[in-house]
Simulated assay, not measured.
Amino acid sequence: MAKTNPGRFFEDYRLGEVIRHAVPRTVGAGERALYHALYPARHALYSSDAFARASGLPGSPLDDLAAFHVVFGKTVPDISLNAVANLGYAEGQWLRPVWPGDTLRAESEVIGLKQNSNGKSGVVWVRTRGLNQHDDVVISYVRWVMVRKRDLDAPAPETVVPELKAALAPADLRVPEGLDFSRYDFALAGEPHRCADYEIGEQIDHVDGVTVEEAEHMIATRLWQNTAKVHFDATFRPDGTRLIYGGHVISMARALSFNGLANAQMVVGLNGGAHANPCHAGQTIRAWSEVLDRADTVAPGVGALRLRLVATSGGAPFRLKDDDGKYLPEVLLDLDYWVLAPL
Rank of each mutant, 00 (worst) to 15 (best):
Y13N: 09
R14K: 12
G16N: 12
H21A: 04
A22Y: 05
G28Q: 02
Y35R: 00
F51R: 07
L57Y: 00
A85F: 07
N86K: 08
G88K: 08
W99P: 05
G101R: 04
T103V: 09
R105H: 15
S108A: 11
K114M: 09
N116R: 15
G119P: 11
K120A: 06
G122I: 12
V124P: 14
W125S: 12
G130Y: 14
V137R: 13
W144M: 13
M146D: 06
V147D: 11
R148T: 07
D153T: 14
E158A: 10
V161G: 06
V161A: 07
A167G: 01
D172Q: 09
V175W: 13
S182R: 13
L188M: 11
G190K: 04
R194E: 10
G201T: 02
D208C: 14
D208E: 15
E214N: 15
V230W: 10
F236S: 09
D239G: 07
Y245T: 03
G246Q: 00
I250S: 02
S251A: 03
S251L: 01
R254V: 08
H275G: 02
A281G: 12
G282A: 10
G301Q: 12
R306A: 03
T312A: 04
T312I: 06
F318R: 00
L328I: 01
D336V: 00
